[in-house]
C-alpha cells in the first residue's frame, strides 16, 4: 500500500459517518418495523412474533428463537441486477445478525416460539449489514421484544492508508479493508466483528476505538427515532 488517501470521494471527514435517518412503524401489518438509512444504503426491517415456530423440532422449550432473513432487492444494486433469492452471502449475514443480537435479546418469556425478522435492502451502497442491524434493533424495540441494550453498527474500514468510518461502495472497491462492527450502547461490548482484508494489530485497536464513537452517533439517531414514535405518549 503505497498510495495515500488524501480526501474521501464524497468529501467527508475520515471519521464522519454518512447522513443517517431512521423511522419506526414503516410496515403497519408487522408487530414492529423500522427503516434505517445510511447515505444511499436503505434497510427496512419487519419483526413478526413471538409466533408459532414450525417445524416443531426447531422449537426451544427454554426460550424463543430469533430468526433473521436478510434480502437484497433485485433493483437495489448500483449496477448489475442483484440475483434474487437466498445466496451464500445472505445466509452468512442472517447468521451474523442473529449472533449480533443473541447477547441482548431476551426471549425466555416466550419459549417454543419464533421471532422472525425480515430485512429488505431497497438500495445498497456498502454497509448494508450494518444498516440492517440498526434497522433490526429499532424494529425489535418497536415489536416490544425485551432487549438488554440497543445494538448499533457501523461499517469501519481502511482505504489505502487511512482508517475510515462508514465506507461507500466506491471506497470499498479501492484498495480497502472493510470491518463491520456492532456494539452495545451502554457497555460498548462488540457483538459483530468481521474483516475482509489484512490489517495490523494497532490499526484494529484504532478502528475499534473509532467504532465506539461512531456507533454512539448511530445510537443517537436510533433513540430519536424511537422517541419520535412513542414520545408524547406521557402527556
Amino acid at each position: 500500500m503505497t498510495a495515500t488517501y488524501k480526501k474521501r470521494t464524497d468529501g467527508r471527514a475520515f471519521d464522519e459517518p454518512r447522513p443517517m435517518e431512521a423511522k419506526l412503524g414503516v410496515v403497519p401489518r408487522a408487530d414492529g418495523s423500522a427503516m434505517f438509512k445510511a447515505g444511499k444504503s436503505v434497510a427496512i426491517a419487519a419483526v413478526h412474533g413471538p409466533r408459532q415456530l414450525n417445524p416443531a423440532f426447531m422449537r426451544n422449550p427454554k426460550k424463543g428463537v430469533l430468526r433473521v432473513n436478510y434480502n437484497m432487492m433485485a433493483f437495489s444494486g448500483s449496477g448489475e441486477r442483484v440475483r434474487p433469492g437466498p445466496s451464500r452471502r445472505s445466509k452468512e449475514i442472517n447468521l451474523v445478525i442473529e449472533k449480533a443480537f443473541a447477547p441482548v435479546v431476551d426471549l425466555s418469556e416466550v419459549p417454543n416460539t419464533a421471532v422472525d425478522v425480515y430485512i429488505e435492502l431497497l438500495q445498497t451502497d456498502a454497509g448494508t449489514r450494518c444498516a440492517a442491524i440498526n434497522a433490526t434493533a429499532l424494529a425489535l424495540a418497536d415489536a416490544g421484544i425485551s432487549m438488554k441494550d440497543i445494538i448499533s453498527a457501523m461499517a469501519m474500514g481502511k482505504v489505502h492508508d487511512k482508517i475510515c468510518v462508514d465506507l461507500t461502495k466506491e471506497e470499498e472497491d479501492m484498495e480497502a479493508v472493510d470491518i463491520p462492527v456492532a456494539m452495545m450502547g451502554n457497555s460498548g461490548k462488540v457483538t459483530l466483528l468481521q474483516m475482509d482484508g489484512i490489517i495490523s494489530r494497532e490499526e484494529i485497536k484504532e478502528i475499534l476505538k473509532k467504532a465506539r464513537e461512531a456507533t454512539l452517533k448511530v445510537k443517537e439517531v436510533q433513540e430519536k427515532a424511537i422517541r419520535e414514535k412513542y414520545g408524547g405518549q406521557n402527556e
Binding site: 438488554k148 441494550d149 406521557n234
Partner: peptide, 10 residues
C-alpha cells in the same frame, strides 16, 4: 414517573 424509556436506557 411516566417518562418514556427505551431498551438499554439507564
Amino acid at each position: 414517573e411516566k417518562d418514556i424509556v427505551i431498551p438499554g436506557q439507564i
